[in-house]
Nucleic acid binder design. Structure first.
Length: 576
DNA sequence: GCCGTTTTCGGCCCGACTGTTTTCAGTCG
């Protein structure tokens, strides 16, 4: 899809315009870029179907940007973009990543020192050529040098699953401070985005200084970027930034609303406040000089006439409109989950016995667990063959009898994660599949197929009456691997036709992604949230699958493992 | 450059912190 290429160009145009001090236009280009980035349809297809008018229907795209999209689709280039690049021939997106370096300084660096790239910048900084430039100084030079060094060691964005436990430890420490009245995670971490840039904390306190002192002295703090009365920013040895904001109690709710974002959501809510003659900032909602709300987020939304919006929805993706008319979804919660159906045991590549996995599930308050070990094609995971699967089936039946005799209301379901072979057939014989409680099918090998072949492969698998669930349906791994070439609309259609469930995989894959979950929900396709645990502790990942589902607007009814075991089994093909 | 249930022109979210140009521009979120 050309969407991402175009988004990148428009972001770059916005950056270039900022170097020239142009007002407002950069914002317009950024908005168009963001909108293209999130667009579910292929922009080239929109143009083919509806022409330029179709392009102008895209949020933030008007006459001019539509023309530029057209130009790009026809010629592969945008003349205006080239001109800007010629005027300032620097790798602008690269340089913008240096903390403390913005468009204006980048322009000066090019004009005075000919700096075009990070490499050029590093050389110049080391020769101390920056400190004498107009607008620069010794401190700025030192900061840029550090910014460069940190860029090298920084991870960029970290996966939600990795950063959340780290952030929660810091939060706990903050909460334990006697000066701290309330504390919360904020930013993209609170919105549960699948990757996190920096970790944001909000604290209510009458003694900000004490909290700041504590924060900058935390173990792992490598550099303090900035420190003021209410706001402090630090860089951690782990390769990421942490920001802390301290506000008085009466502003805690509005500050939390502001600091949680997203930026787009904030702009939209502030506009709504303005339309009502109010002003919304992190200090509260104000009518003239009077603060009329601010202590809680609930109050903030209420006084500007909105239904409370869960953090996972705050992306300006339609939640504002839904909130205004009171039609927000009742999002699924972690407590709604009654079992995990994608768990591996030590019968194949998993770490723990079936008993240990089952015990872990019981401790979580689940009513069932599904053991779905790999099948024989996956040699690296010691996948099971037909004979081993039947042995495992007997073994699990025995365990279930034991539970029954102990009056335990818990059941182990027996499944398999079987491989979808290149031609769409399943690597385990149908008569064996039919004896299991359910069958998960997934693509692991031969992933580089063209869309048409890949969809034919998946279609055949979905049409198999023994296949109940497609695991990690698009094959993506966050930050590591793009999805396979698939046609998701067709996949949804097939899911509906065949009654096949799509998995939301809570591991590093985060597959389905949020936008796909929302589309699946809209098409009435049922989903299941699983962890793909190969270790008992990985069953804890369930919360991330749930937050991903929430970001996809999913409700309890959309997710089949919110049901009791009887209801769950009815969701499968051969069990009604 | 985009947008509009007061608007097709005149707006475009709001504030903190830093360093340096010593009164404010640049950067960040």
């Amino acid at each position: 899809m050309k969407n991402q290429e175009l988004a990148k160009i428009f972001y770059e145009i916005a950056n270039f315009l900022q170097t020239e001090g142009v007002a407002f236009k950069p914002f317009a280009y950024q908005r168009a870029a963001k909108s293209l980035e999130d667009l579910k349809e292929d922009v080239a297809q929109i143009y083919i179907n509806k022409g330029k008018n179709g392009l102008e229907e895209i949020e933030g795209v008007g006459k001019n940007i539509a023309l530029q999209i057209e130009e790009y689709l026809k010629t592969g280039k945008i003349a205006g973009h080239q001109e800007l690049k010629n005027k300032l021939p620097v790798k602008i997106d690269e340089l913008m990543r240096v903390e403390g370096l913005g468009p204006k300084k980048i322009k000066v660096l090019y004009e005075k020192l000919g700096i075009k790239s990070l490499k050029d910048l590093e050389k110049a900084v080391k020769k101390h050529e920056l400190k004498d430039l107009f607008g620069f100084g010794e401190t700025t030079e030192k900061n840029i040098l550090q910014g460069l060094e940190f860029l090298k060691t920084s991870h960029g964005r970290s996966p939600l699953q990795v950063i959340t436990p780290v952030a929660r430890k810091v939060l706990k420490k903050l909460e334990n401070l006697k000066e701290v009245k309330m504390a919360s995670l904020a930013g993209s971490l609170r919105r549960k985005k699948e990757t996190i840039g920096d970790v944001d904390f909000l604290v209510a306190s009458d003694n900000p200084k004490a909290v700041m002192d504590f924060f900058v002295a935390l173990p792992g703090v490598k550099k303090v970027w900035g420190r003021g009365d209410t706001k402090t920013s630090v860089y951690m040895t782990g390769g990421f930034d942490m920001d802390l904001r301290v506000v008085p109690e009466k502003s805690y709710g509005s500050a939390l609303q502001y600091f949680t974002g997203s930026k787009e959501h904030n702009i939209a809510t502030r506009k709504i406040a303005m339309e009502k003659g109010l002003k919304l900032s992190e200090y509260g909602v104000f009518e003239g000089e009077n603060q009329i709300a601010g202590a809680t987020e609930q109050d903030v939304y209420k006084v500007i006439g909105m239904q409370y919006i869960e953090p996972e929805l705050r992306e300006d993706q339609g939640e504002i409109q839904s909130s205004l008319v009171g039609s927000l979804p009742a999002l699924i919660n972690l407590e709604d989950i009654k079992g995990d159906l994608h768990c591996h045991s030590n019968w194949n590549g998993g770490e723990h016995s079936i008993e240990v996995m089952a015990k872990t599930a019981m401790e979580k308050g689940y009513q069932y667990i599904g053991i779905s070990d790999h099948s024989k094609t996956l040699k690296i995971e010691n996948g099971l063959n037909e004979k081993q699967l039947l042995e495992q089936n007997k073994y699990i039946k025995n365990l279930n009898s034991k539970f029954k005799s102990q009056n335990l209301k818990f059941r182990i379901l027996h499944g398999v994660e079987a491989d979808i072979l290149k031609d769409g057939s399943i690597d385990i014989k149908n008569e064996v599949l039919a004896q299991l409680d359910y069958v998960i099918a997934s693509v692991h090998l031969n992933t580089k197929m063209e869309t048409k072949e890949m969809m034919a492969r998946i279609e055949k698998a979905m049409k198999n009456s023994n296949v109940d669930i497609i695991a990690h349906p698009t094959g993506r791994i966050v930050g590591r691997r793009e999805e396979y070439k698939i046609d998701f609309d067709q996949m949804l259609k097939l899911a509906n036709q065949t009654g096949t469930i799509l998995e939301i995989n809570s591991s590093a894959r985060m597959d389905l992604r949020d936008l796909y979950i929302r589309r699946a929900k809209n098409e009435g396709v049922k989903m299941i949230i699983n962890t793909d645990a190969h270790h008992k502790d990985q069953m804890d990942l369930m919360e991330y699958g749930v937050s991903q589902a929430r970001r996809g607007w999913a409700e309890k009814e959309d997710i089949i493992n919110t049901q009791s075991v009887e209801g769950l089994l009815k969701s499968f093909k051969n069990n009604d």
